[in-house]
């Protein structure tokens, strides 16, 4: 019987080693300071900060969010303080913690992605980049890059040559074949794939007959998208040989374990942080308990362990 303290939970993403597989999803954890009184960041595998662009962005007009069945739609529109302000005002705070810092980056053009990547590569305390080619709520950039395999290849390749940090490419589910996109990212040198970002959706106010979001459409997140995310993680896991980071409605440790069985080497907790700032900690604790109870000494033995044949009744 394996003892809790002997369980191996480290995850390798390119040259980076995470202590454990649990991290928050970009945009649900601010720039890091916001949850510091709730979560001991030293216990997280990594922190993934809000998406950063070269210049500050004001984001979309309100209303920006609306609850839907078992989830929510958001159309924040990449509001962020810009990469320079992040390095100057937010990064010093994050350096005090043991966990890795993953900067999520966004651009309207390939050049902007590369520039943001370059700037962050020179900053002390950033350990990896997550390239957001999947934001559905902006006019330019974002998902426009993430739905075409050739564009994915170009952005990934050029970001890779702009940085020596490990590069994670975050994929959009708003595509017909997620595996083609994932393979393009891998071929262009991605160190890992994270998926899924939100699914485009809509919600209407029947009294005013207007959209519940000023942006008309938004990105659906939360438990509502979990089965879709899980299926896509499984599909991608079977087509690539780089680590897959599972995202999409993970709220409980059981959800996270499902993703790992389907092929996720690590998981990101997103919308669940919004209803419970301690969601990452609860999920981490539960994963460890699961591994102990199931007598699994190394997390890697769980990843992709889905059995295709059902046991005989």
């Amino acid at each position: 019987m394996v003892h809790l303290r002997d369980i191996k939970t480290d995850v390798k993403i390119g040259s980076l080693t995470l202590r454990n597989p649990v991290m928050p999803a970009s945009g649900t954890f601010g720039y890091g300071e916001e949850f510091a009184e709730y979560v001991d960041y030293n216990l997280l595998g990594a922190i993934v900060v809000k998406g950063l662009s070269l210049e500050p962005r004001a984001g979309n007009p309100p209303p920006r969010i609306i609850e839907t069945a078992s989830g929510m739609l958001n159309a924040i529109g990449m509001e962020n303080i810009g990469v320079q302000a992040f390095i100057k005002d937010k990064l010093p705070f994050l350096r005090q913690f043991r966990c890795a810092v993953i900067a999520n980056i966004y651009g309207e053009t390939v050049e902007e992605y590369c520039k943001v990547a370059e700037v962050l590569s020179g900053a002390e305390g950033v350990h990896a980049l997550e390239v957001n080619i999947s934001c559905p709520n902006v006019e330019k950039g974002g998902v426009a890059f993430g739905t075409d395999p050739a564009m994915v290849h170009e952005v990934t390749g050029k970001v890779k040559s702009s940085t020596n940090l490990p590069v994670i490419v975050k994929l959009s589910p708003n595509v017909t074949d997620i595996t083609g996109i994932a393979v393009s990212a891998q071929d262009a040198g991605a160190d890992a794939i994270s998926l899924i970002n939100t699914m485009t959706g809509m919600s209407v106010d029947i009294i005013s007959r207007t959209s519940n979001l000023a942006n008309l459409t938004g990105g659906l997140s939360g438990p509502a998208i979990k089965p879709i995310a899980l299926r896509m993680v499984w599909e991608v896991y079977n087509k690539v040989n780089i680590p897959v980071i599972g995202i999409g409605g993970i709220t409980t440790p059981e959800d996270a374990v499902e993703f790992m069985i389907a092929g996720a080497s690590a998981v990101q907790i997103g919308t669940a942080n919004l209803i419970n700032p301690l969601a990452t900690m609860d999920v981490l604790e539960g994963i460890l308990t699961y591994l102990e109870v199931q007598d699994i000494a190394d997390l890697r033995d769980l990843v992709g362990s889905l059995k295709l044949e059902r046991p005989e009744e």
Binding site: E34, F35, I65, E67, M72, I76, E79
Partner: peptide, 12 residues
């Protein structure tokens, strides 16, 4: 609001 604590930027 979604989070109430300043991370989601939903209530601006």
């Amino acid at each position: 609001m979604a989070c109430g604590v300043g991370v989601c930027l939903g209530c601006v």
